[in-house]
C-alpha cells in the first residue's frame, strides 16, 4: 500500500520492508555491528548480577547478613511502592533491581546506535546510495527503513536483557522478588520509555551518520545520549531521586517532543539531492 504524505512524498510499506529486510540480512552478516550490540546486554546486566548475586555468593553472606544496602533499602520503603510488604534479603534485592534496572536503558541507546550507524554508513562506504536512490524509493521511506531494522534489533536485545534479569530474579532471587519487580514501573520503563529513548538515539545516529563516513565517530557523538540515563542512575543510587512511574512518564513525554524535533531534522538531512551530492 502506498500513502501520499502532505509533503508530496510517497510512503510504501512494501519498499520500507524490502530495504529493512535487506538491512537485517546485512546486519546478521556484520559481526562488527552485532557483537558490540550484544555485548551491551551483558555489560548492562553485569553490575546488577555482580552486586545482587555474585558478591554475596563469593562472600558466603547474604546482603542482609553483610548489612550492605540494608539502610538504603529500608529508607526507600516509603518512596518505592514495589518494596511494600518486603523485608530482609528480599527487600534489599528488590531495591537493587529497582536501582540497576535503569542501566538496562543503555541497551537500546548503545545497541541501536551501533546498528544504525552501520546501516547508514555501510551504504555510503559501499557506494550503494546512488543506485538505491535511483529506484522509486522516497527519502522518507529511506529514513524509515534505515531506522526500522536497528529499532527492532535493539528493542529485541533490550527485552532480552530484561528477560534475563527476570529469569535471574526468579531462579536465584529470594521468593517474591520477581513479583515485586514485574509491575507498572517495569512496563513503563521498557515498554514506553525504552523504545522512545531508543528511537531518539537512532534518529541522532542516522543524522550524525549522514555527516561522517566512520561508524565510530558517529557512535562517539551519539554516546552523548547515554549521559542523561547515567545521571539518573547515579542520582538514584545516591538517593537524590527515585525514577518511578511519574518520572518515567515525564521522561517519555520529553522523548516524544525530542523525537518529533529529530524526525523533522532527519527529513531535512535526508534530502535526495544533498545525499547524492554530499554523501556519495
Amino acid at each position: 500500500m502506498t500513502l501520499r504524505l502532505r509533503s508530496g512524498q510517497a510512503f510504501s510499506w512494501t519498499r520500507v520492508a524490502a530495504l529493512a529486510r535487506k538491512d537485517a540480512r546485512e546486519l546478521m552478516r556484520n559481526p562488527g555491528a552485532v557483537i558490540p550490540a550484544i555485548l551491551m546486554v551483558f555489560g548492562s546486566l553485569f553490575p546488577m548480577f555482580l552486586v545482587v548475586f555474585l558478591v554475596p555468593m563469593i562472600m558466603g553472606q547474604t546482603l542482609e547478613q553483610s548489612g550492605e544496602f540494608a539502610e538504603e533499602a529500608a529508607n526507600a520503603v516509603g518512596r518505592i511502592p514495589e518494596l511494600a510488604g518486603l523485608s530482609g534479603n528480599a527487600l534489599i534485592q528488590t531495591f537493587l533491581f529497582h536501582q540497576f534496572s535503569l542501566l538496562l536503558l543503555l541497551v537500546p541507546i548503545v545497541s541501536g546506535t551501533a546498528l544504525a550507524t552501520h546501516a547508514v554508513i555501510g551504504e555510503k562506504q559501499s557506494k550503494a546510495l546512488e543506485p538505491l536512490l535511483a529506484t522509486p524509493i522516497s527519502t522518507i521511506e529511506l529514513l524509515a527503513a534505515k531506522t526500522l531494522t536497528p529499532f527492532l534489533f535493539a528493542l529485541g536485545l533490550t527485552w532480552a536483557a530484561v528477560s534475563v534479569a527476570l529469569v535471574g530474579a526468579i531462579t536465584v532471587g529470594e521468593p517474591g522478588v520477581w513479583r515485586s519487580i514485574v509491575g507498572p514501573r517495569l512496563f513503563l520503563l521498557f515498554g514506553l520509555l525504552g523504545p522512545l529513548v531508543e528511537l531518539a538515539s537512532l534518529q541522532v545516529s542516522v543524522i550524525v551518520s549522514s555527516r561522517t563516513s566512520d561508524p565510530r565517530s558517529a557512535q562517539q557523538l551519539t554516546a552523548l545520549l547515554i549521559l542523561p540515563v547515567t545521571i539518573a542512575f547515579v542520582a538514584q543510587l545516591m538517593g537524590l531521586m527515585i525514577v518511578g512511574p511519574r518520572a518515567i512518564l515525564l521522561g517519555a513525554a520529553g522523548c516524544v517532543i525530542l523525537n518529533a524535533i529529530l524526525a523533522w531534522l532527519g527529513v531535512q538531512v535526508f534530502q535526495r539531492e544533498s545525499i547524492l551530492t554530499r554523501w556519495t
Binding site: 535487506k22 540480512r25 546485512e26 552478516r29 556484520n30 559501499s126 557506494k127 550503494a128 546510495l129 546512488e130 543506485p131 538505491l132 535511483a134
Partner: peptide
C-alpha cells in the same frame, strides 16, 4: 535503468 559509475552492490549479501 541506471548503471552508476561504481557498482554499489551490498557486498555482504
Amino acid at each position: 535503468g541506471l548503471l552508476t559509475e561504481a557498482p554499489g552492490l551490498w557486498e555482504r549479501l
